[in-house]
Structure formats: structure tokens, C-alpha cells
Design a protein around this nucleic acid. Structure first.
Lengths: 222, 222
DNA sequence: AATTGATTGAAACAATTGTTTGAAACCATT
DNA sequence: AATGGTTTCAAACAATTGTTTCAATCAATT
């Protein structure tokens, strides 16, 4: 919030831009507002970045990197069962999404990028979303029967993140849909617990096509 | 697209505004563009609506009503099992979300409203989202054990719609994440089949708190 | 101390924005 | 044909936008 004198002008602008773009959107945010908040001159935007558009892309990417580092996945031991890793992933994912206060503006920025994809979207996917997706994909792979087709793998993975992302994208709806007390009851921990249980139940009962023999899970779950 | 002469100027403006707001967003859409597309004079916006903001709200609400009518839920017989109703609901929901071509712009508009909620959001929830939510809630209620707490009911319902909405909100991501052929394989019917199976599996295995006796499902599914 | 290059500053620029204005055109009723 | 209210139109307004300009300032090297 208060800019340290050690920060360079360029950094201060990027930071201020990220917050304001997230809060008001690209068009509604003026370079004058950004520069005022960053304590810089108007011309600084065109000096350090070529124009407003490039500043936006830079701000988005910086924000995502910083955000991922703020809510890291736990370091798993080699023998950590996939059920536990799934639970951890879901909890961390929800924390990132609904990350309290200072993390919130990043989530908003990503949502805007989804509603109005720019060139920043493709870059975001390649640099940071894809690695996260691969991690979850591996977890689901270990949970599903070995012969499960890759398409089912993908769909199941999407089912997991879809349930998490709902509380991000549809937040304005749930806020208007539920009573204040019901809405307040949607704590991150409660949501993570439900989603984890829901997904594990669905996956473990999954007996695709041929009922065959049930893969005996070696008492791994919790 | 081509405006019929029977349409009144006010209607033409509302329609054009809806499409353009969805495509480019509120700020990026100028009243000049809207009026040009509607074949009306610039002053018409301020004449029929007071200002641009009120035109936006009107356009959003009109769009949603027209959209729901375009993709209606089937009329269920009294004895239609909840499993079938769930499958129907999910399929219809996906159709609404990814509704081909002319329906697409409505989905975009709603997404923008989520990313940047205005007064139109609350009105949207009350007038059309809530009734749909109640329908699904009732279906899930019949699927879950009778003693399931209302919170679990809500969370399960959110899990259903979350999986559907994923393919709406995260579309730019999946497009960049998957290969073109894998992305193309995400047909509405395939998605509906997976989500339905996934949810039914999770719900039917759900043995909340006390494992108790398994409720024998009377061969209702399919 | 002088010089060079990078950075900052205030002001102006050119374009676009939503909105307003007031007169013309239209249309039904008298 | 005249009237009154509604609708359309071209033009202009006032404000704001991203961007540019060019001189002043700073920091380090010669």
C-alpha cells in the first residue's frame, strides 16, 4: 500500500496498475490514477512501458507469479497418498481463489481476463496455469483406474477445479442467492472438505464400462 | 442482425446494445456504435433511456429473459425419477451456457456481470437465476438421503452447477490448455454425460457421518 | 567540474467520450 | 388545414482519455 522508497518507479507503477486494473477494469482505470497512486508522473507509463496495454499485460503476469508464491502447495513426501494430495490441492486452490484481502485483487484480475481475454491470457496459461493443471492431473491419474481413458482423466480434473472455481466466479450470485448467515458459512475449510469428499466419492465409485475388479486401495485415505 | 422495420427504435437499440456490451464490455462500447448498429440517432439513447448505464441494465435483463425462453427445461412427468431430471437439467444448463452462436453473446454478458457486478446482478439473481436454482435444489433433495442437512444440500447443488459453469468461465483457459482436437472433443453431450455420471456417483455413495445402511435405490436410474 | 545518459516533470495535444440542444420531421386528432 | 405531442436529426458541448513533447533534474563516469 504505502510504497517503500526502495522500490523503483517501474515496480511501483506495475503494482498500482495491477490493483487498479483488478478493481475497476482496464478501460475504467486511467493512467493518471495509476501514476498518482504510484507517486509517479503521467509520462512514466509511456516511458517505462510503451503504452497502457503493455503495462496491463506486465501487471497481470507479475500479479500471478506473486500470488502463486503467496499460497504455495505443500511439499509432499514420496509416499503421500493421492487422496491426501487431492485434499491439499483443493484447499490450496480455494485459498488462492478466495485469498483474503490482499490476495483478492488478483482473483478479480484473472476473472476479468476470462471475461475479456487479451494476449495476457495465453501467456498466463502457459507460464503458470498449465503447471498447476499438470499437478492435479497426476493426482487424478493415480486415483482413477489405470485403464481410464485420457479424456475421462481430463473431464474428472475439470470437475474438481470447476467445483472450486464456482466459488470464485459465481460469488456475486451466491451472495445474492443465500441468506447472509448461509453465505458466511461458506468457509474455505468447509468448502474444501465438501469438494474433496464429493470428488473422492465420485472417483472411487467410478466403475467405468466394465465393473471388473475394484482396485484395492491400500488404506491410504486419511 | 438485420433490423425489421416493425421493431421500434427502442427495441432495436436494446438489442444492439446487448450484443455489443457482451462482445466488448460496457466501457469499450460507445453509444455511437450502438446507435449506428441500431440505425438510430445518437440522441436516441438519452431520449429513450436516461443514460448509458440504464440502457445497460435494461439490455442485460431483456437478454436473460429471452435466453431462458430459448433453452427451456423439458416438461417432466410426475413420476420422472430425479436421476433423469438431473441429467436433463445439466444438459439444458450446458446448452444455455454454450448455446451456439446467437446464444453465445448472452453468456458473455453474464460473465462480465460477474466480473464487474452492477445493480443488474442482484436483479438477475432474483428474477431468473433463483428459480432455476430452486429447481435443481429440489432434484438434489430427492437424490440425497432425507436426513441430509440443508448445508450439504446447498454444497452439493453448487458442485453440480460448478462443474457446468466451468466450461463457461474457464473456456479461454481450456482453449489454451488443450490441443485443438481435445478441445473440440468437449461436446455438450459428452460434458453432460460425464458431469451427470460424476455427480450421481458422488451422491449415491454419499454415506454422511454414520455409514449406517445403504439406501437401496429401486432401479430408478435410466 | 564537466559531460553524458537516464529519469522526472508540467504542459499541451489530438482524439474520443457521454450528453445536451434546438430545430426539423412525423403523425394522429381536432 | 391546423394543432399538439412525439420522435428524429445534425451539430455542438464539456469533459476526459492516452499519448507526446521538451526542458529540468538527477546520478554516475570521465
Amino acid at each position: 500500500m504505502t510504497h517503500l522508497e526502495t522500490d523503483t518507479t517501474r515496480e511501483r507503477i506495475t503494482e498500482a496498475a495491477g490493483e487498479m486494473f483488478a478493481e475497476r477494469g482496464f478501460d475504467a482505470t486511467t493512467v493518471r490514477d495509476i501514476c498518482q497512486r504510484a507517486g509517479a508522473n503521467i509520462a512514466a507509463v509511456n516511458y517505462y512501458f510503451r503504452d497502457k496495454q503493455r503495462l496491463y499485460i506486465e501487471a497481470v503476469c507479475l500479479a500471478h507469479r506473486a500470488h502463486l508464491e503467496k499460497f504455495p502447495l505443500p511439499k509432499w513426501a514420496e509416499d503421500t497418498p493421492p487422496q491426501t494430495r487431492l485434499a491439499d490441492f483443493i484447499l490450496t486452490f480455494l485459498r488462492r481463489i478466495r485469498g483474503g484481502r490482499e490476495g483478492g485483487w488478483y482473483a478479480k484480475l484473472v476473472m476479468r481476463e476470462m471475461a475479456n481475454p487479451t494476449t495476457a491470457c495465453a501467456e498466463l496459461v502457459q507460464s503458470s496455469i498449465r503447471p498447476q493443471f499438470e499437478i492435479l492431473l497426476q493426482i487424478v491419474r493415480e486415483l482413477l483406474p489405470a485403464h481410464a481413458p485420457p479424456e475421462e482423466l481430463r473431464l474428472t480434473t475439470f470437475s474438481v477445479v470447476g467445483q472450486c472455481l464456482f466459488y470464485h466466479f459465481a460469488d456475486p450470485v451466491t451472495r445474492n442467492l443465500l441468506s447472509p448467515s448461509d453465505y458466511a458459512a461458506l468457509s474455505i475449510e468447509r468448502l474444501a472438505e465438501h469438494i474433496t469428499k464429493f470428488c473422492l466419492a465420485a472417483i472411487e465409485q467410478q466403475t467405468p464400462t466394465m465393473p471388473a475388479r475394484r482396485k484395492p486401495h491400500t488404506g491410504a485415505a486419511k
